[in-house]
Design a protein around this nucleic acid. Structure first.
Length: 553
DNA sequence: GTAGGGTTAG
């Protein structure tokens, strides 16, 4: 009862203190405070409530509520839910995707089909392309880099082949993409060769290229080499300035070595004037590594140097305390900030609200939102995504939906993170129609999906045995230049094993191995067990051959 | 790209 009263008061406060413009309308969010109180008592059920728009969208099936009990899973489970299958088939967008995958029509499709095949070396790709009598596609090269960013053999083979074609030269952006692809695949010798080649072309290397190189090296744990690139940065025609140093520090910290970042800082700090980013980057690094004493030392040094600590500096400390669930110290930092006239911003509040929500106290999380409004700080899209996430994790799907719908009204554009949050939550609760409609809205909003958009959808399709939708999603991914990553392959292989599609599971497993990914042993076991159960001896042998090649390398 | 991203089902 006490809790109810508290929440009631809190909700009313949230409503009365809301900003007139661009703030979330919490009143609208919950219709009334009733929702907040009913959820706390557990009376609000998660349900795929009838969508108010559904009557206006005849092309969206009512297959959640309108399932035909007689439509038992057939041999071809593409038609488990006939209305869904027909929606997917007849949807104009799906038709377009289907055409794109069945009959290659554009140059991009033709190249994609060729490059998708497994190759053992870039030379093999070059040979294949040489025999094809194709010419370099005029406009889609950038999309090819995106599609094959984690498939260095295909990308590099195409790169070499295209370079050899008369009348074609790669632009600096293509070189930069290729450098990054090689770095990601840890083909550092090739990456450095290409960097040399760019250097000879004059004007092809910019700071962005160098930062990418340092970042890839640092990610691979090659910290000294990353520092060496910075040391010799002028040989690449790049100024050894504070921008470059900050890039190095950030790369080393993203590669999880604040120690190397600190070493580099000590080595180069006398060579150029520092700025607050240099200090903040180091503070962040030490906070991330849970070395708060070191972070405090940098803060002190920052002041002595004449740089005023700012909202970013303090937010790093707040994040560190949030990670420890030390909310007393979070409050102390907030007080200190306010005393110094440094106003917390949406990032600061997002971090605190998220941490409060994750530690299971939604009431406290909403108090943060209230505090934020009192301080005159406006929520942004990332803040809303976090709020949606926190509310949904607490079982308040309807409130989360309201926040999502309110964003646009408040002039906030949902980002890919917002959509991913919404889609993944819909998928978790098996709200299939809702999840697919969100994907559709994303397209209408021109919001580019990423691999995290598709992963929960694909998982849900496997769980619910929606093969037609699965294929639709795979085409959709391809069309949006989103390639399947390691963990998504795992989801697909595991999911397809579980839903009685061993052939497809084998195909994806093979594809991931040929892309150079090394699957977990548990995944291989699951696949082999499934195949043995189905007496698919040849497939088992194929998997074993595939894996013996991997371990032999 | 100075700080906010909620992986992997069983």
């Amino acid at each position: 009862m006490m809790m109810k009263m508290l929440l009631k008061t809190q909700t009313l406060n949230l409503i009365s203190r809301s900003h007139p413009q661009r703030t979330l309308n919490v009143n609208h969010l919950s219709h009334s405070f009733a929702l907040f109180t009913t959820t706390i008592t557990g009376n609000t059920k998660l349900s795929d409530s009838p969508d108010p728009d559904s009557s206006e969208s005849p092309d969206i099936p009512s297959w959640v509520t309108n399932q035909n009990p007689e439509s038992k899973p057939s041999e071809d489970d593409d038609f488990v839910i006939p209305s869904l299958a027909s929606w997917v088939e007849n949807h104009p967008k799906v038709k377009r995707f289907a055409i794109a995958t069945e009959k290659p029509q554009t140059q991009l499709d033709i190249f994609t089909q060729i490059l998708k095949k497994p190759y053992s070396s870039p030379e093999e790709v070059v040979d294949t392309l040489n025999r094809s009598s194709l010419s370099v596609p005029s406009v889609s090269v950038n999309r090819l880099w995106k599609r094959f960013h984690d498939c260095w053999i295909s990308a590099y083979g195409f790169f070499i082949w295209a370079k050899e074609q008369t009348g074609y030269n790669h632009d600096p952006q293509s070189y930069s993409f290729m450098v990054d692809i090689l770095g990601k695949a840890r083909k550092f010798d090739l990456m450095f060769d290409l960097l040399q080649e760019m250097n000879q072309l004059k004007g092809y290397i910019n700071l962005y290229t160098i930062v990418k190189v340092m970042r890839r090296l640092a990610r691979a744990g090659r910290f000294s080499e990353a520092i060496e690139v910075f040391r010799r940065v002028e040989e690449y025609g790049i100024e050894k300035d504070i921008m470059a140093l900050n890039g190095l520090l950030d790369a080393l910290i993203k590669g999880d070595s604040v120690e190397h970042a600190h070493e580099a800082f000590l080595e180069f700090k006398e060579c150029m004037p520092l700025n607050s980013s240099s200090f903040n980057t180091l503070i962040h690094g030490f906070c991330k590594a849970r070395k708060l004493e070191d972070a405090r030392k940098i803060l002190k040094e920052m002041k002595e140097y004449g740089c005023q600590p700012c909202v970013v500096s303090y937010t790093c400390f707040i994040e560190a305390y949030c990670r420890e669930k030390d909310f007393d110290n979070v409050d102390s930092v907030l007080d200190e900030m306010k005393k110094k006239g440094c106003t917390p911003n949406a990032v600061t509040y997002t971090i605190i609200m998220h941490a409060r929500g994750k530690s299971g106290t939604i009431g406290k999380a909403l108090e943060v939102y209230e505090m934020m409004k009192n301080d005159g700080c406006l929520p942004d899209s990332s803040f809303c995504s976090s709020l949606i996430f926190i509310l949904s994790k607490g079982g308040r799907l309807k409130d989360a939906d309201e926040i999502f719908e309110d964003m646009k009204k408040q002039g906030l554009k949902p980002t890919v993170l917002t959509y991913n949050t919404m889609i993944s939550l819909a998928c978790e609760h098996s709200l299939e129609e809702k999840a697919l409609k969100l994907l559709q809205r994303m397209e209408e909003d021109s919001c580019k999906p990423n691999v995290y958009t598709y992963k929960p959808l694909l998982r849900m399709c496997c769980r619910k045995k929606r093969m037609k939708v699965l294929n639709f999603l795979l085409s959709h991914m391809l069309n949006n230049d989103v390639s399947i990553d390691f963990s998504t392959y795992c989801v697909l292989v595991r999911g397809l094993c579980s839903c009685g599609k061993p052939e497809q599971a084998v195909a994806f497993f093979e594809e991931m191995v040929l892309k150079g990914m090394i699957p977990f042993d548990s995944l291989r076991k699951k696949l082999v067990e499934t195949l043995e159960k189905e007496n698919m001896t040849e497939a088992v042998e194929k998997i074993q051959r595939l894996m013996s090649n991997v371990t032999a390398e």
